[in-house]
């Protein structure tokens, strides 16, 4: 997904302005003209100039505002790509209430199906990967992966 340089340049300019405005409220060191706002302001100034330069380049190039690369136009590509953030978001939101052992296999199974893995393989892989990661992180490394609904059953 290629945007015209001017689009991202404008976003950088806006971020730079917001940062510079916010940084004005940061306190200076006692008796100095410098403080916690100095470097953010400097970086914002550089970002503003470079972003502006990108706007100029983008406008001059007369490229379309947005252009899809060939690989992204392949059938199903956009949908498979969207599945990645959807998987992560669903995983974080459901992890605490339901627990790692209950959330992971169905989500991973669904993602594997989206990736056109055969259902039988997907099922085996989803369960095996869940067990493997549980073993490494929860048992070997002692990471408290949430048990969610299973907490009361286990304890």
């Amino acid at each position: 997904m290629r945007w015209n340089d001017a689009v991202l340049g404008a976003i950088f300019v806006i971020i730079a302005l917001v940062v510079a405005l916010d940084a004005r409220g940061f306190p200076d060191l006692p008796g100095q003209a410098y403080g916690s706002g100095t470097l953010p302001t400097l970086v914002a100034a550089v970002m503003f100039c470079l972003g502006a330069a990108q706007i100029v380049t983008g406008v001059r190039s007369r490229a379309p505002a947005i252009r899809l690369d060939a690989w992204m136009r392949a059938p199903g590509a956009a949908w498979r790509m969207a599945a990645v953030p959807l998987f992560v978001a669903a995983f974080v939101l459901l992890l605490r209430p339901l627990g790692f052992p209950l959330v992971t296999p169905p989500l991973l199974f669904a993602l594997l199906l989206v990736m056109t893995v055969r259902p039988a393989t997907a099922l085996v892989v989803a369960v095996a990967a869940t067990a493997g990661i549980w073993f490494v992180f929860a048992r070997l490394l002692g990471v408290p992966l949430p048990l969610g609904l299973l907490t009361e059953i286990v304890y």
């Binding site: 893995v117 892989v125 990661i133 990471v143």
Partner: peptide, 18 residues
């Protein structure tokens, strides 16, 4: 690749959490 990358994604999420 279509089996490998979903597993890596799960690993990433747990790794970021851990």
């Amino acid at each position: 690749a279509n089996v490998l990358f979903p597993i890596i994604l799960l690993f990433c999420a747990i790794g970021a959490f851990a």
